[in-house]
């Protein structure tokens, strides 16, 4: 009974709530719209500013002014016929440099490089004593790959060897300077007796195989 008495009130409240919702929605839309309008006004304002700045820039950098600057400072002159090239062929005409003997020699070296480690052909010819130092230098890389477990203990020995090696071999090829300097840091004296021929051979074979497969330069 009471419920039915409040029914109209409920209706009124319901309709009022619905109307309020509608109004809120409409208000929301209106505020969005006004925001959009203000944004549009801002865009228009910015465009106007762009236009006026463009005008100012164009006026300041007018052709007469550029001409004056050219006359006073740049002194550029019109290009002549020689400065224009018609095709790639005429461009190639300018490549007049002939490869010197030096250039050719360097080229051949590069070709040899891919076949063998760079130090290998040079070092044995110059001084046989330099060979161990060179090979050893690249050895740690090979070991890190972990292809052969028995070589692991050799690593330490190999690096230790390096220091005494440069001493008896002062005339190594100029190229190994870079690789020799790296193992020089953990140098330890008295390790030379540990470096026997088989060790060297193993290391050399490893480094060769690694270089041949991986690094190409």
């Amino acid at each position: 009974m009471i419920v039915s008495g409040f029914k109209p009130v409920g209706w009124v409240a319901g309709i009022g709530a619905a109307a309020l919702c509608c109004y809120m929605l409409s208000l929301q839309v209106a505020s969005e719209r006004s925001e959009l309008a203000s944004l549009e006004r801002q865009i228009v304002h910015t465009r106007q500013e762009i236009r006026s700045l463009q005008t100012e820039l164009g006026t300041r950098g007018r052709l007469q002014q550029l001409e004056q600057w050219n006359a006073e400072v740049l002194a550029l002159s019109a290009p002549v016929a020689d400065q224009f090239l018609e095709s790639n062929v005429s461009l190639a005409r300018f490549d007049v440099q002939q490869p010197s003997l030096d250039d050719r020699a360097r080229l051949r070296m590069a070709a040899a490089d891919t076949a063998q480690p760079p130090a290998a052909p040079a070092a044995p010819a110059a001084a046989p004593t330099a060979q161990p130092a060179l090979r050893l230098a690249s050895a740690p890389v090979a070991v890190q790959n972990g292809t052969a477990s028995p070589t692991r203990p050799l690593v330490r020995r190999a690096s230790l060897v390096v220091d005494p090696a440069p001493a008896p071999a002062p005339p190594p090829a100029p190229t190994p300077a870079r690789s020799a300097s790296r193992p020089a840091a953990p140098a330890d004296s008295g390790a030379s007796p540990l470096l026997d021929d088989s060790t060297l051979r193993d290391l050399g074979a490893q480094s060769r195989s690694e270089r041949g497969g991986g690094a190409r330069n």
């Binding site: 109004y23 409409s26 959009l36 309008a37 006004r41 228009v44 465009r47 236009r51």
Partner: peptide, 17 residues
């Protein structure tokens, strides 16, 4: 008025561009 007023024209008043 709330429903029918079109406010989209506000920004277009005399396009200054």
């Amino acid at each position: 008025l709330q429903v029918s007023t079109d406010r989209s024209g506000v920004a277009a008043i005399g396009n200054p561009l």
